[in-house]
Amino acid sequence: MLKTKKVLAIFITATIILFFTGCGNNIHKDTVKNSNSKIRVVVTFNALREFAYAIGKDKIDIETLVPEGTEPHDFEPKVKDMRNISDSKVFIYNGFGMENWVDKTLESIDNKNLIVTNASKGITPIKNGDSNEIKEHGQYDPHIWLSLKNAKIESKNIRDALVKADPLNKSYYEKNFNDFSKKIDALYNSYNEKLKSVPNKSFVTGHAAFAYLCRDYGLEQRSIEDVFASEEPSAKQLKLLTDYCRKNKIKTIFVEEMVSPKISETLASEVNAKVKKIYTIESKEDNKDYLQSMASNLDLIYNSLK
């Protein structure tokens, strides 16, 4: 009897040890899985994806709402887009009227833990001067990411959101942000003195997307279409722009991927200028990242002004 009890006790002890060892292994596996899982991030369009990836890298899984080749101003979210936002941990949008559907969409999202980030927080806006555009799109020019200075602010806001969502990897996000900031500063500084030295400060684009870049460097843009590329210029406006180009000896007319090049090509022909592509970074273009696209833009603008 005593021997039987002893065997039974050994069996129970062994069972308990196996149970807790098994649980420990499962807990360890779950912990490893959770620590290695990626933060789900939804952004509205490509420029924000560039910033989020620069900071989050392999710690995040990014979904971009606006399809490649689609103008973000004209995008309207579908049911699947709202589901993507609801299922995410972090939602990042540009602000300043770029996504005029955001407020209404967020009201319908059932995710109390969703971290919503307005990337424009802390940026001084440039007011929209067209009363018709203000009614439709809001009072501010939203193209803030085309300024290197603003890109740092947007990236900082994104960093803060990722740290809030994933505090265990705070140092990782901060390091990536600091590395990215240094690259932005280096690019900004490499053109600051160059652009100060050019006698001509004006360039002409397909649509008025570069006001914040101009503010950074003391430049001026003239454009064929308005801030939101919503309508073609009148004959009178085109005549004034043609005269301006001739008077200021404009050598290059810049055109963007999502704006029709026809008027730009006609204008260039009239004033004996070249047509060259400039990046708005609203979509991924020519497989260039943000810094490569901005370096190309600054180089083109600088050479057109020399």
Rank of each mutant, 00 (worst) to 15 (best):
Lys5Asn: 11
Lys5His: 08
Asn272Ile: 07
Ser269Asp: 12
Asp74Thr: 13
Lys274Pro: 02
Thr64Leu: 08
Phe91Gly: 01
Asn46His: 15
Lys277Trp: 09
Asn150Leu: 12
Ala161Asp: 00
Ile224Glu: 03
Ala208Thr: 00
Asn46Phe: 15
Ala151Met: 09
Ser181Pro: 02
His143Val: 11
Arg159Trp: 04
Ile123Val: 13
Asp286Pro: 10
Met294Cys: 02
Glu63Tyr: 14
Leu2Arg: 09
Gln221Glu: 14
Arg159Ala: 14
Tyr53Glu: 11
Trp101Pro: 01
Asp226Trp: 04
Lys183Phe: 10
Leu168Tyr: 06
Leu219Asp: 00
Leu267Asn: 03
Glu225Ile: 11
Ile144Ser: 11
Ser108Asp: 10
Ser304Arg: 08
Val259Trp: 02
Met98His: 03
Glu231Asn: 12
Ile253Ala: 09
Phe11Trp: 05
Lys38Asp: 02
Lys239Ser: 13
Thr280Arg: 09
Glu133Met: 15
Met98Val: 06
Ala52Pro: 00
Arg246Thr: 03
Asn272Ala: 13
Phe96Met: 13
Arg159Phe: 13
Ser283His: 09
Met1Gly: 12
Ser35Asn: 10
Thr70Cys: 10
Asn303Gly: 06
Lys89Met: 05
Cys214Trp: 03
Asp58Cys: 03
Gly56Ile: 09
Ser296Asn: 10
Ala119Met: 08
Leu298Phe: 05
Ser296Lys: 12
Val259Glu: 01
Phe254Val: 08
Ile92His: 03
Ala52Cys: 04
Gly56Val: 07
Gly218Lys: 04
Ile263Tyr: 06
Asn128His: 01
Phe51Arg: 00
Ile123Lys: 08
Gln292Val: 12
His207Ala: 09
Lys104Tyr: 08
Glu68Trp: 03
Asn200Phe: 07
Val204Phe: 10
Arg83Lys: 15
Tyr172Ile: 04
Asn248Leu: 07
Pro233His: 04
Leu240Ser: 08
Phe11Asn: 01
